[in-house]
C-alpha cells in the first residue's frame, strides 16, 4: 500500500496552490523514495515538475510504485478544509487505485476528517528533461520576483530577460510605453533571502509570456528565494526549493522572433 503522513498540512496546501492553476489534472507518481508530479498547461507552453522526497514526511510507506491521477480542483476542495498545522495522511491501494483517501487530523487530535477523492485517467506524455548546462543562473528573493512579474504585466504581455555581466534586466513594452527593471548582483550579503546572485557564463537575452510567470509565482510562499536558469534557445527554469526535501521547477518555452 501507499501511505504518507505529513506533519504540516500547510505544505501540501501550498504545493497544490502553486500547480493547480497551471495543470488541471496531474499524475502523482509515488515510489519508495519520493512523490513526483509532472504536468503541462493545456497549451503546452509550460511544464511543472514537483519532487517531494520521503524524508519530508513523518511516515512514508510505498510498497509498490503507484501513479495517482489527481484532479487538482477536487484535491484543492479537500485541502481547503485543512488548517496549516493539521496533519495530512494520504492513502491509496497498490494496484490501479481508482481513489485516494485523505485524512486530516487537528494538531490537538480532537478533530479528524476523512475524504475520498476519485482518481482520474490522464493520457499525457511524460517527458524526459535532459541535464542542461545553463548560461546564466539568477538567484533572488521570491517575493521580489513576484513583484517584478506583477508590475511588468501592466505594461505588456511578455518580458524580455537580459543577463549581462552582473546585472539582470527585466523589460516589458506595450501601448503605454516601456518598463525596465534592473537588479545588480549584491555586493554584500546581509540576508541571503534578500540578496541577488547573478552567475553568468554567457550573456543571454530571451523573451517569455508574463501570464505563465505570474502563475509560477503562486509558489512564492514555498520558498524565500527563487532561482532562474537561462540559456539561449532553451526553456527558462524557475525553481523554488521545498526546504531540503524537494523542489518545484517550472519550465517555460521562450518566444522567438518570427
Amino acid at each position: 500500500m501507499f501511505e504518507a503522513k505529513l506533519q504540516q498540512g500547510g505544505l501540501l496546501k501550498k504545493i497544490l496552490e502553486s500547480v493547480k492553476d497551471l495543470v488541471v489534472d496531474g499524475l502523482w507518481d509515488c515510489d519508495g523514495a519520493a512523490i513526483t508530479l509532472q504536468g503541462m498547461d493545456s497549451s503546452h507552453v509550460a511544464l511543472v515538475e514537483m519532487l517531494l522526497r520521503a524524508e519530508a514526511f513523518e511516515h512514508y510507506r510505498c510498497d509498490r510504485n503507484v501513479t495517482l491521477g489527481m484532479n487538482h480542483n477536487h484535491l484543492s476542495k479537500i485541502l481547503k478544509c485543512a488548517n496549516n498545522d493539521d496533519i495530512v495522511i494520504l492513502k491509496a491501494a497498490d494496484q490501479n487505485p481508482d481513489s485516494c483517501s485523505l485524512i486530516l487530523e487537528s494538531k490537538n487530535g480532537e478533530k479528524t476528517s476523512d475524504f475520498v477523492v476519485s482518481l482520474v485517467r490522464i493520457d499525457t506524455d511524460q517527458l524526459g528533461i535532459p541535464e542542461t548546462e545553463y548560461s546564466a543562473h539568477v538567484k533572488m528573493s521570491s517575493g521580489e520576483f513576484q513583484r517584478i512579474c506583477r508590475d511588468l504585466s501592466q505594461f505588456g504581455d511578455a518580458v524580455q530577460i537580459t543577463c549581462s555581466k552582473q546585472d539582470v534586466k527585466f523589460s516589458s513594452s506595450g501601448e503605454t510605453g516601456k518598463a525596465n527593471i534592473t537588479l545588480t548582483h549584491s555586493a554584500t550579503v546581509d540576508k541571503e533571502e534578500e540578496s541577488v546572485t547573478v552567475d553568468l557564463k554567457e550573456p543571454v537575452d530571451l523573451t517569455f509570456a508574463l501570464r505563465f510567470l505570474n502563475l509560477f509565482t503562486k509558489a512564492t510562499p514555498i520558498s524565500d528565494t527563487v532561482t532562474l536558469s537561462l540559456s539561449q534557445e532553451a526553456p527558462l527554469v524557475v525553481e523554488y526549493k521545498i526546504g531540503d526535501s524537494g523542489h518545484i521547477r517550472y519550465f517555460l518555452a521562450p518566444k522567438i522572433q518570427e
Binding site: G128, F251, I256
Partner: peptide, 14 residues
C-alpha cells in the same frame, strides 16, 4: 511579432 514555442519541442517523450 514573437512566436510562442511549444515546450514539448525541447524535451523527449519517455
Amino acid at each position: 511579432f514573437r512566436q510562442q514555442q511549444d515546450i514539448r519541442s525541447f524535451f523527449t517523450r519517455k
